[in-house]
């Protein structure tokens, strides 16, 4: 191993061809799930009253235009086709990039009425990951084009690391913003309790026995608030510390299940926790390394 190799070995967790192929499949499946559950062509066909407040710079930046549902439908179909190619590992270099470019247009269309960019609509991580996958050897395994090629593990690790990092940033940036705007005061029992109380008031379907139990137990609310901050602060470790990967990913699934049950928030990136499964046992160094 050269000295340069050693430096990158320290910075980039190792991964193998099977794990990278798994990441490719998860990214493609999640993006397909979102695309097949939405209707960008239908949004294009909506009347002017929906479009009147869309900022001109948004239209320019994402090439958005009302009244062209046929074109949007064709792009939607093309995105699905490209993602299917990525899913089966066929010419990922081309179709990964093309899928990402089409999603760059379609995702903002699906977030037309939002006050922010489409980061929470479920296609942000997929878009970035497709570009990364397009220049990685993600077809070496679990693909119709794969010839079982074997490369040094460093050829795979960087792509897996980048994709996991982009996902982990969801929590890092959310908690950073919360601490910067509210501070550690956020981790008070009132944070969780008032949140649940107002959501129960606004949405009767959230007025459940589970929520009633939570608000009646202040200590539990405190634990949930502190636990949320801790989980979000430390989730980034799942990218770099193999032994923490699965426990943190499992905690993430539990965390979002809790959010769904208490506040009714779904998380379109939930399948991305599967990105943290290592299929090659990369955490074990072999003797020849």
């Amino acid at each position: 191993m050269t000295s340069a190799d050693r430096i990158y070995e320290l910075c980039i967790p190792r991964s193998g061809p099977l794990t990278l192929a798994w990441v490719r499949i998860i990214i493609a499946l999640q993006a397909l799930w979102i695309l097949l559950s939405r209707d960008p062509a239908g949004i294009s066909a909506l009347p002017d009253v929906v479009w009147q407040d869309v900022l001109p710079e948004w239209k320019l930046r994402f090439a958005l235009s009302p009244g062209i549902p046929q074109i949007e439908f064709a792009l939607w179909l093309f995105a699905i086709f490209s993602l299917l190619c990525v899913l089966i590992g066929y010419k990922t270099r081309i179709f990964g990039l093309l899928a990402a470019l089409v999603l760059y247009h379609l995702a903002p269309l699906m977030a037309l009425m939002n006050v922010t960019t489409p980061w929470g609509k479920g296609l942000t991580i997929a878009l970035l990951s497709l570009v990364i996958l397009s220049c990685s050897p993600c077809e070496d395994r679990l693909s119709i084009a794969g010839r079982g090629e074997s490369r040094p593990h460093q050829a795979y690790g960087w792509a897996v690391m980048l994709i996991r990092l982009l996902f982990a940033q969801i929590y890092l940036f959310s908690v950073a913003a919360r601490l910067s705007r509210v501070g550690f005061d956020w981790a008070k029992l009132e944070t969780v309790r008032n949140h649940i109380l107002v959501f129960r008031l606004a949405e009767p379907s959230l007025d459940t026995a589970f929520n009633a139990f939570l608000v009646a137990h202040p200590m539990l609310c405190s634990v949930l608030a502190i636990g949320t901050l801790c989980f979000e602060l430390f989730f980034i470790l799942a990218v770099f510390v193999p032994i923490l990967r699965l426990p943190l990913a499992a905690s993430g699934v539990l965390f979002h299940t809790g959010l769904w049950l208490t506040l009714g928030f779904s998380f379109p990136n939930l399948p991305h926790f599967a990105l943290f499964i290592d299929l090659n046992g990369e955490q074990r160094r072999s003797k020849d390394d």
């Binding site: 760059y104 995702a107 903002p108 922010t116 960019t117 489409p118 980061w119 929470g120 942000t124 878009l127 970035l128 940033q169 969801i170 929590y171 890092l172 940036f173 959310s174 913003a177 919360r178 705007r181 509210v182 005061d185 956020w186 009132e190 944070t191 008032n194 949140h195 107002v198």
Partner: peptide, 13 residues
């Protein structure tokens, strides 16, 4: 975006 400034629940109630 797509490099996102993720801001889930960056407020207190």
């Amino acid at each position: 975006w797509p490099f996102a400034a993720w801001r889930y629940v960056a407020y207190a109630v």
